[in-house]
Deep mutational scan, measured.
Amino acid sequence: KELVLVLYDYQEKSPREVTVKKGDILTLLNSTNKDWWKVEVDDSQGFIPAAYLKKL
């Protein structure tokens, strides 16, 4: 599985998104959309702007 590093805090703005903190390491589930990547946070899944993430 691929991991990503969160570069900036992000507060979810819709139920399909997730809240993350700078420095979090998350599992990347889908990066086919260049603007929004799907990640797994704890036991939930959701989208975060790709610009907030860096592949490890």
Rank of each mutant, 00 (worst) to 15 (best):
T32V: 10
K13G: 08
K38T: 08
V18I: 14
I25M: 05
Y10G: 01
I48A: 13
D35C: 15
L7Q: 03
K34D: 11
V18S: 04
L3F: 14
L56H: 04
T19D: 05
K54P: 01
P49V: 04
S31Q: 08
E12L: 15
W37M: 02
I25P: 00
D42Y: 11
Q11T: 14
W36T: 03
Y10T: 01
V4Y: 05
A50V: 06
K34A: 13
N30M: 08
L5D: 00
D43H: 12
I25W: 03
T19L: 05
K13P: 05
N30G: 06
D42I: 08
V6K: 01
V6M: 02
E12M: 15
L26K: 01
W37V: 02
D42W: 09
L29K: 04
G23E: 02
Y52P: 00
V41I: 13
Y10I: 02
G46F: 15
G23W: 06
D43S: 12
T19G: 05
V4I: 04
K38V: 14
W37E: 00
K1S: 09
V6N: 00
V39M: 01
V39W: 02
K21T: 08
F47C: 14
N30V: 07
L5C: 09
R16G: 15
L53S: 02
F47R: 03
E12F: 15
D24N: 08
Y10Q: 01
L3T: 07
E40Q: 14
K55V: 11
L26E: 00
N30E: 14
S14Q: 08
W37N: 00
D35W: 15
S44E: 12
K34L: 09
Y10P: 00
L26D: 00
D9Q: 04
K1N: 10
A51F: 12
F47E: 04
K22R: 12
S14L: 08
T27P: 09
E40H: 06
S44C: 12
D35I: 14
K38W: 13
W36D: 01
K1A: 10
L28Q: 00
K38S: 08
V18H: 04
Q11Y: 14
S44W: 15
A51Y: 12
S44L: 14
L7D: 00
L26V: 11
S44A: 14
T32N: 12
Y52F: 12
E40C: 14
E40R: 12
L29M: 06
A50W: 04
K22F: 05
L28H: 00
L56W: 07
G46M: 15
D43R: 10
D24G: 05
Q45D: 09
E17K: 10
K34C: 11
W36Q: 03
K34H: 10
S44P: 01
A50N: 03
P15C: 10
T32F: 10
L53C: 15
V4F: 03
L53K: 01
L28M: 03
L29Y: 04
K22C: 06
L56P: 00
N30L: 09
S44F: 14
T27G: 05
T27M: 10
E40L: 12
L7C: 07
D42Q: 13
D24W: 15
Y10F: 06
T27K: 13
A51P: 07
E17G: 15
L53P: 00
V4R: 01
R16L: 13
Y10M: 02
P15A: 12
V39P: 00
Q45H: 11
E40T: 07
L56K: 02
Q45S: 13
G23P: 01
Y52E: 01
K34S: 11
L28C: 07
G46L: 15
K55T: 06
R16Q: 11
R16S: 12
G46S: 08
W37Y: 04
A51W: 13
P49W: 05
T27R: 14
L7Y: 02
Y10V: 01
E12S: 15
V41F: 12
E12Y: 12
K38L: 15
E12Q: 15
L7T: 04
K54I: 12
L7G: 00
P15F: 07
V39Q: 01
D35A: 12
T27Q: 09
I48K: 01
P49S: 04
E17M: 09
L28F: 02
K22S: 07
D42N: 14
L5K: 05
D9W: 05
N30F: 06
Q45E: 13
D43E: 11
E17V: 07
V18F: 15
L7E: 01
P49D: 03
T19E: 04
E40M: 13
V18D: 01
E17Q: 13
L26I: 12
P15N: 11
N33M: 08
E12W: 15
K55C: 10
K22H: 06
L7I: 08
P49F: 06
Q11V: 14
L29C: 06
T27Y: 11
E40N: 05
V41D: 05
D9I: 04
Q11K: 13
V4K: 01
S44K: 15
K1C: 14
E17N: 10
I48Q: 01
F47M: 08
L53H: 00
E2P: 11
E2Q: 14
K13I: 07
V6E: 00
I25H: 03
P49E: 03
K34W: 07
K55R: 13
K13Y: 08
G23M: 03
D43M: 11
V18W: 14
D9M: 04
R16E: 10
L26C: 12
K55F: 08
T27V: 15
V6Y: 02
V18C: 09
K34T: 10
V41L: 12
Y8R: 14
S31M: 08
E12P: 15
V6R: 01
W37C: 03
G46T: 13
V41W: 08
L28T: 02
S31Y: 07
L28R: 01
K1R: 14
K55W: 07
V6P: 00
D43L: 09
D24S: 11
S14Y: 10
V4H: 01
A51S: 14
D43W: 06
I25S: 01
G23I: 02
V20N: 01
G23H: 04
S44H: 15
L28Y: 01
D43I: 07
Q45L: 07
Y52R: 04
I25C: 05
I25E: 01
E2A: 12
Q45I: 14
N33P: 04
T32I: 08
D42S: 11
T32C: 14
D9G: 05
E2Y: 11
K21W: 09
K21L: 06
Y52C: 13
W36C: 09
A51K: 14
L53Y: 01
V39T: 01
L28P: 00
D42L: 12
S14E: 08
S14A: 09
K55L: 13
V39A: 01
S31C: 13
R16C: 15
P15W: 08
K13T: 12
P15T: 09
L26H: 05
Y52W: 07
E17A: 10
V39H: 01
L28N: 00
E17D: 06
Y10L: 02
V18L: 15
T19K: 08
T27W: 13
W36S: 03
S44I: 15
K22Q: 10
D9F: 04
K13D: 06
L7M: 08
V20G: 03
N30P: 03
T19M: 07
V6C: 06
E17Y: 08
L29W: 04
K21I: 05
N30I: 07
T19A: 06
A50K: 06
V4S: 01
T27F: 11
L5R: 07
K1D: 08
K34N: 11
P15Q: 09
D43G: 15
L5W: 06
W36L: 05
P49H: 04
T32M: 10
D35P: 02
K38A: 09
T32A: 11
A51V: 12
S44N: 13
T32H: 10
I48N: 02
K13N: 09
S31E: 11
D24R: 11
L3Y: 15
K55Y: 08
G23C: 07
T32D: 14
W36Y: 09
P15E: 11
P15K: 10
E2I: 14
